[in-house]
């Protein structure tokens, strides 16, 4: 009897944990790779874009299992936000009543307009190399090969 109620309590707790982790979240970075397994050695099965809304089914360490935009797999949780990110511009953006806790307006605040304004008054500051360095992007396969060739053996296959 006692064992039965214990099992029931455990089941309830598990269900509660599952319910708590199932949530809609937004991608808060320019691009987020989706992987087949919760690890950086996991194969990339797709890419999500800024503002994409997805369902988080469960989390494992720092990884979230997601589904949405026709993709399912694992995303590192640092790419996700509980806020809804509204991709809108100009007047439309201004009309959205922003309550900061639940909503973030993409392009609001310090943005490309502010950068342009800054550049106009600081002509000595050159962004050429900043743009150039942003283009240097190492593909997952190159990272994996680099570790392997250098005999660098990651613990548990990636960030936790």
């Amino acid at each position: 009897m006692a064992r039965k109620s214990l099992a029931a309590a455990a089941l309830l707790m598990a269900a509660a944990a599952l319910a708590a982790s199932a949530a809609t979240m937004s991608v808060q970075v320019k691009e987020a790779p989706v992987r087949a397994t919760p690890s950086f050695v996991g194969k990339v099965v797709g890419t999500l874009a800024y503002g994409d809304r997805i369902e988080v089914q469960q989390t494992q360490g720092a990884w979230s299992q997601i589904a949405g935009k026709g993709i399912s797999g694992w995303v590192h949780s640092s790419a996700l936000s509980t806020k809804k990110i509204v991709l809108a511009s100009g007047r439309e953006q201004a009309r959205v009543a922003a309550s900061g806790d639940e909503l973030a307006l993409a392009g609001k605040g310090f943005n490309s307009d502010v950068e342009a304004q800054f550049k106009a008054t600081h002509r000595d500051i050159d962004f050429t190399w900043i743009n150039r360095m942003e283009k240097i992007r190492i593909a997952p396969a190159e990272s994996q090969a680099f570790l392997k060739d250098g005999l660098v053996a990651p613990k548990e296959g990636g960030a936790k």
Partner: peptide, 11 residues
């Protein structure tokens, strides 16, 4: 990729 925050807006 092994830091606590591997995904930033622009990488």
């Amino acid at each position: 990729q092994f830091s606590d925050r591997p995904e930033t807006f622009g990488g």
